[in-house]
Design a protein around this nucleic acid. Sequence first.
RNA 1: GCCGGGGUGGCGGAACUGGUAGACGCAAGGGACUUAAAAUCCCUCGAUCUUCAUGGUCAUGAGGGUUCGAUUCCCUCCCCCGGCACCA
Length: 825
Amino acid sequence: MSVEQKWQKYWEENQTFKAEDFSNAPKYYVLMMFPYPSGSKLHMGHCKNYVIGDVISRFKKMQGFNVLHPMGWDAFGLPAENAAIKFNIHPSDWTKNNVKVMTEQLKNIGICYDWTREVTTCEPDYYKWTQWLFLKFLEKGLAYKKKKEANWCPKCMTVTANEEVIEGACWRCKTPVTKKELDQWFFKITDYAERLLTDLKTLKGWPAKVKLMQENWIGKSFGVEINFKVKETGDALPVYTTRIDTIFGVTYLVIAPEHPLVKKLIKGTEYEKKVTEFSAKLKLTSEIDRTSDATKKEGFFIGKHAVNPVNGEAVPIFVANYVLLEYGTGAVMAVPAHDQRDFEFSKEYKLPVKVVIKPADKNLIAEEMTEAFVAEGVQVNSGKFDGLAGKNGLESIADWIDGSGWGKKTVKYKLRDWLISRQRYWGAPIPVIYCDKCGIVPVPEKDLPVELPYNVEFKPTGGTSPLAGVPEFVNVKCPKCGGAGKRETDTMNTFICSSWYFLRYTDPKNRTEAFSAEKAGYWMPVDQYVGGVEHAILHLLYSRFFTKVLFDLGYVKFQEPFTNLFTQGMVLKDGAVMSKSKGNIVLADPLIERYGADTVRGFILFAAPPGKELEWSDQGIEGIHRFLARVQRIVEPNVVNIKNAPVKLDSGALEKEAKDIYRQLNKTVKKVKEDIENDFHFNTAIAALMEFVNCLYAAQVPAAGKAKQDFETVLGYSLKKLILCLAPFMPHMAEENWSSWGNKASIFSAKFPDYDPSCISDENVTIVLQINGKIKDKLTIDINMPEAELRELALQNQKIKEGLAGKAVKNVIIVKNKLVNVVAG
RNA sequence: GCCGGGGUGGCGGAACUGGUAGACGCAAGGGACUUAAAAUCCCUCGAUCUUCAUGGUCAUGAGGGUUCGAUUCCCUCCCCCGGCACCA
């Protein structure tokens, strides 16, 4: 057994990193986004991720925190199922196997989890509570079923949430999604749009980028909903606009072809067939083609007109591919003069263009326009509003319409409800039963979990869940009336499982509750969350939503789950994220075998700051390996000095050589701590430790006497601190050294070094002398030399005198302990 | 198209609030030790000019600007990466 394995076993057997519920020490909850047990062996991408969390957790523990650092498995979901189909093995067996492999791998690289809190989302004792949460949402009216056109991934054979569609394609398999109308379960995340948006402001510890992405996703806009009427039938036809200042420029109206009113308006007319065909065609086009602004605008007149309430004008109604049913009212007023999309459509179909806003400095002639004028300007052809400019025009018209009853000021969000049902096998069953008499009946809490049956032909069919083919699962008694009932056969989106796992870690063994209020209250919110930015919207938005719902239901007392968020940069190989499917992975095992886990950890931390993407290359791993050997070579001959090292040093009494080392030590410790705390700049922290070791090697050892004695004392003292500083990064070698000095307890029960602020600054400092900002000479002076003295010194300097060459000195700028700049001309 | 982030040696990357650009490491070259190799240790290492120095000039994507002084602040442009993508 290697030294590293020895310590890995020690940590496990001694439960060195077990987190205690409730403690006098302050709590610190550090969490890594839990992985899919995909079965791939640990590669450098994973490695970086988990090592970051590991360093934080070890560092915090050494600072005296009661640290919770758990690990678990996001085990439900399509990747597991697809792989299982491919290898012809049951997803459950496949998953369990993978968990075993990955656990082993995480231990190999020396990650310190509290394994007693391990959580696996596909286990009934976990998903029981996922189902329970669903029932709570249902009870609160936050879960509902609706027949709706949804994003459909033809490859995964399931519907999918808006958040899971990336650039018009399924985020997992990259297949372009189409539309399919199905009965689906939704979570009403839109009810929380405003809170999800405003509370972003409270997340001071989140990257601005992530907050911005969520803000854009929620997409709040202010506008007016205005009531047009169909001239021929009198039907109300409301439209939503953010540009009510262009209301007098409306020359036609456009409705989404799927809009329910369209069916009514064309029924029995010559347009009926054309519209039906058009809608069918659109349904089959992928989201990307449908919604790209590069796509040609297509549509046609449907034989009816709409009346503009502000001026009574009747304008033709069109259907077109560029209007979305789901946003706003599914219908828009078209103002070709001031909206680029409408402009393009009007050119295509020869529709009139009416200018109602003109630039401040010139006139605008409709016939001469080559594109829509969308900038702010001055109202024209707008009745009594002519002459008003910019926002003023917009607000005046909005107020006027709001007051007239023709419409009202409205706020809209782009965020849509979260589609949570999936027609796949490997997920938590949705716990409801359908009864002809009682309708949708929730499964009573006492009957949870609704267990996922094992023997299922789980290959996807195409619109129905594989569970529908299991009669003993489907056919049940109605819990309400006892009559014949049928279970819901769709399963839940796995993002539900991962929207609350951080709560389960606080109380993972609880058999009567999802988590106890006390324990969650103690540990939550997560102090430091670490994960990839790819979840900026998906998982992070859903988890915030869940937390707010749980707050409203009274189960938790906080409204945001993650106080600080760190998004680590991914590891790339040949320009792409490492992944098994791309075949560009670099496994950790061979490197660990060759260099040891400490070296691999050290290297990945040293190669780049953790927030930055890293193009993998093992060029340089030797450097860390050499460094560790170098540390060892100076530690070993000094074990006696280390053992004799005093707890505290009096720097005032030290001889020069010793004092220089001591000062350097304090500088180093300060830098290491600051670098770790400042956005986890582990690379520069390690560089500082390297510099310190270089400095120890370069030190002149005094030959004899007190100077020698002092030197040895400080050397022993420093080496001990050095190993303590290295411990979070290279924990195995740190433990090994620590125990070899006779320490019985783990080094992680020791305190991370503090620095002595009284002995940190140099006595001398090198400053530069400049003329007009150009360096002429360098000078070593006493630190904090008075300005007047320094000024004199600079002006008397030979190089400065030469450089001035008789030019007049206009000014002398002195930056303390940094430079003197003589301004001359 | 809109919104973010970024561009520094052969390479990965440093640089506090505007104050010595290139820390630390890799690679490369030279030397010491060794029968030899490995390991280790020492030196050099942005470009360029000259009189080879403890010298000069130029250098942080390009061009301007502010400043005693700019990798850092402002303007214009180029390129790369990420997000959103007909949201009315």
